[in-house]
Amino acid sequence: MTDLLWTRPETAPRATLLLAHGAGAAMDSAFMTRLAEALAAEAIAVARFEFPYMAERRSTGRRRPPPKAETLVDAYRAAIEAVRAEAGSAAPLLIGGKSMGGRVAVMAAGPDVTDAVAGVVVFGYPFHPPADETNPRVAPLAAVGRPTLVLQGER
């Protein structure tokens, strides 16, 4: 796992959100940066991180497709522990992500994850693979077992 990229509010945070990137854009993409800044303006501390494949892409410059989302759950859970170690428990911990990162967050928030996670926030959940609406990816949403907010766009 790469280092955490923090965007903190000017006041004490009401919550901390661990935020994972989508399949093709890094943690410091324009969307992720704007989102983190907007959340910090609402007193939510945001910790962004990169999955190992994206960190490798950053260091080598080689673009490879992301691995299957299921294989990224352990990396997400390691990021949860890193945020807990750094931020403590003063504010509730939320986890989430953009698109694929949100899907992995939902899987990482399953019933066997620590009770330290108060909820999940997803920005653009991929309800099915691209161009394959016959293969839904909603089972993890039903199994998450904690408050979950999914924010979808218009596409």
Rank of each mutant, 00 (worst) to 15 (best):
E50T: 15
R137G: 09
P136N: 07
L17G: 09
L5D: 15
R14V: 09
Y76W: 05
P92E: 05
G61Y: 07
A23S: 15
P140S: 10
A40P: 01
A43N: 15
V113C: 09
E154I: 13
M100E: 06
A116D: 15
T16S: 12
S99A: 14
K68P: 12
M54Y: 01
F31Y: 13
A85Y: 04
G145W: 08
P66H: 03
P66L: 00
F123A: 14
V120E: 09
P65G: 15
G153L: 11
L93C: 05
V106A: 11
V106R: 01
A43L: 10
G153V: 07
A12W: 01
A45T: 00
V138F: 14
L149P: 08
G88N: 09
F123I: 07
D132C: 04
M54F: 04
R64W: 02
A43I: 04
V83P: 09
M54N: 03
G24K: 00
E86Q: 15
A79I: 01
A116P: 05
V83R: 08
R14Q: 11
L149Y: 05
A45P: 02
A85T: 13
V121W: 07
N135W: 01
A82M: 09
V144M: 09
Y76D: 06
V83S: 07
L19N: 15
P66R: 00
V120Y: 13
Q152E: 15
P129S: 06
N135Q: 13
A41G: 15
L39P: 01
V104S: 04
A41Y: 04
F31I: 01
P147H: 11
V138P: 02
Y53E: 09
G96W: 07
A41P: 03
S89V: 11
V46L: 08
A75N: 05
P111T: 10
P67R: 00
A38F: 10
D112W: 08
L19I: 06
L4I: 04
F127N: 00
G61L: 11
V106D: 08
A75E: 11
E10G: 14
H128L: 03
A131I: 03
S99R: 00
L141A: 08
L141E: 02
G119F: 06
A142C: 06
Y125G: 00
P136Q: 11
P13D: 00
A82P: 03
P67C: 05
A116V: 10
T71I: 06
P52I: 07
I80S: 02
A47I: 00
V73D: 07
T2C: 07
G61S: 04
R62Q: 12
F51H: 05
G22W: 00
G22Q: 07
A45Q: 01
